[in-house]
Simulated scan of single mutants.
Amino acid sequence: MPGYKTRKLQIDIGAFSGRLRALRDRNQYAKSDSITKSEGISSANWSLFGQLWPASLVLAGVVKKLKLKERRILELGCGLGLPSLILQWRGANITASDHHPLSKDFLDYNAALNDLPNVPYLHLPWSETPRDIGRFELILGSDILYERDHPAQLAELVQVLAAPSAKVLITCPGRRYRNQFSRAMKEQGFQLNETRLAFEEGEVAPYRGRLLSYQRHA
């Protein structure tokens, strides 16, 4: 799909040193009415998937330290897929998901750019109930609670996709809808541990950003 320009970013997270292809800026837009209408993506939001957001960097740093324990892992709204790529580099059982028409292309390109096997990918609109993809012991997301409908949609996805014993990790830059999501998660038996984190260089406490860690035991 022509009509956009890209750049390559240097990424250094712990022992991982690699590169990531991203859209050059937030004004990049490849017009395709049939695709954008079918996916519900406006021209104003089209380029958001192709940026490296602070929440994704924070989540990548978190998953770099996770104990994998043979968990089946799913990243929701992966965008460029940095956390998924870090987990692939670590040898995890990771599946990435998004609904943007170019997410898989960028994810595959970035895996090859870092000499990694392709990350398994699911086209997963949050408004649709997924079927026959099994359950996951760990579900991840970065800055995925920014719209009014997101808490209910994501809570429904967790209900369908989370294993009886599961953890959900979300890096959130202080979105107001996080409390609504936390209440829905509590109804599913998840306990919340919330940690304040700096998302931007130079931030001082008290930080707006949070690592939301939801845990449920069977």
Rank of each mutant, 00 (worst) to 15 (best):
L197H: 05
Y177A: 01
L124A: 09
F136E: 07
A15H: 01
I94M: 11
M185D: 04
I13V: 12
H100M: 04
S38D: 13
G79S: 04
I94G: 03
G174A: 10
S97A: 14
F181H: 03
S34Q: 10
F181L: 06
L116Y: 14
E147C: 01
L82W: 08
C78K: 02
D33E: 15
E156A: 15
K69M: 05
D108Q: 14
E128D: 09
A15P: 02
L102A: 07
I133E: 13
S127H: 15
G77M: 08
L66K: 11
L138V: 07
R148S: 03
Q215E: 13
Q28S: 06
G141S: 09
L211H: 13
Y29T: 05
P173M: 14
L48F: 05
N118R: 12
G61E: 15
F136W: 01
N114P: 11
G202V: 09
P2N: 15
N93F: 05
I94Q: 09
D108G: 06
R90Q: 13
L113T: 02
L211N: 05
T171M: 07
A162Q: 08
P101N: 09
N110P: 03
R135P: 02
R7M: 10
Y4W: 08
R176W: 13
L52Q: 13
K8D: 13
L161H: 07
W53T: 02
A92L: 05
L138M: 12
R216L: 02
S42L: 10
V119D: 13
L169P: 07
L124N: 03
G40S: 08
G77V: 07
V63E: 05
N93W: 05
L87C: 03
Y109T: 11
A205H: 08
